[in-house]
């Protein structure tokens, strides 16, 4: 009996040891990056790199462009995907598989291949506008927006509430905005946050379409100022992680 208990304890010890090693792999780069970003020229540590972020000449332009792309992608994503996924749950059930299939395809076509097609197929006047990048981000986000909204609608008897609203004389727009959307809050927030995280981190398409967004800017800065680019990386990771942790909490609340 004692032998069995001892063996079980050993096994638990082994499990904790495995987890500790994996945790070390994930924490070391984080700690390193924080330390690196705090390094100053004279061998001391301080907030110099973070302070200099705001003084960069193109900081304002980069942030404005990135914000603009974020707003375009989030708004357009919702305008296209919320009615589509609602329709699919409502009457066009036959098309659910087709819509799901199409929405998941951006996972099969790598962004590097998509951008190759985009710069060759789009009219030059469209390529001259950064907004096209935002339009493409809607596509890249589709696998995530579809899943988030689809999961949200699964938990909702959408047919009943829509029939009720329609029966009371609401227009389709009213139904979508004032009946479906409020009930789909967590799904919509999930889709929004994932889209934001995507736009703030996307490098492939932005750099090859020659737009200076936050990620491409970090890469450019990195060629001349390592501490600054690491500081920017830490800041952008921290921001994205806060968003993603918020999603996971929203998710848990929905399941509970």
């Amino acid at each position: 009996m004692a032998a069995i208990v001892k063996r079980r304890k050993e096994r638990h010890l082994f499990a904790w040891l495995t987890l500790a090693l994996v945790a070390l792999y994930f924490l070391l780069p984080l700690v390193s990056a924080t330390e690196f970003s705090l390094r100053e020229n004279n061998g001391t540590h301080g907030l110099d790199a973070y302070r200099s972020i705001l003084q960069q000449p193109d900081f304002r332009d980069v942030i404005m462009l990135t914000l603009r792309l974020t707003v375009i992608s989030v708004v357009l994503s919702l305008v296209i995907m919320v009615p589509t996924v609602t329709m699919v749950h409502l009457g066009a059930k036959k098309y659910r598989r087709l819509v799901e299939f199409i929405s998941l395809q951006p996972l099969v076509i790598p962004p590097i291949v998509l951008v190759l097609g985009v710069v060759n197929v789009m009219p030059v006047s469209w390529l001259g506008s950064a907004d096209l990048l935002g339009f493409e981000y809607v596509v890249l986000a589709m696998p995530f927006t579809f899943r988030a909204l689809d999961a949200g609608l699964m938990n909702l008897d959408v047919k009943t509430i829509v029939d009720a609203a329609r029966g009371l004389g609401a227009s389709w727009l009213t139904v979508l905005v004032r009946v479906v959307a409020p009930n789909l809050k967590s799904g919509i927030f999930g889709a929004m946050f994932l889209t934001i995280a995507l736009v703030l981190g996307e490098f492939t398409m932005a750099s090859l379409m020659l737009w200076n967004t936050f990620p491409t800017w970090i890469a450019t800065v990195g060629q001349s100022d390592a501490a600054l680019s690491v500081a920017l990386s830490v800041a952008s990771l921290a921001f994205a992680w806060v968003l993603l942790v918020l999603i996971s909490f929203a998710d848990r609340r929905r399941k509970a």
Binding site: L30, G201, S233
Partner: peptide
């Protein structure tokens, strides 16, 4: 939660994080 967060970490910030750790002047 951490897995959901880390799985979505990629691209440029990830590269610089590792340069800070295992690069020529990295902490590690």
């Amino acid at each position: 939660t951490a897995a959901g967060v880390f799985a979505n970490t990629g691209g440029i910030p990830l590269a610089f994080m590792f340069i800070a750790a295992l690069g020529t002047y990295g902490m590690v």
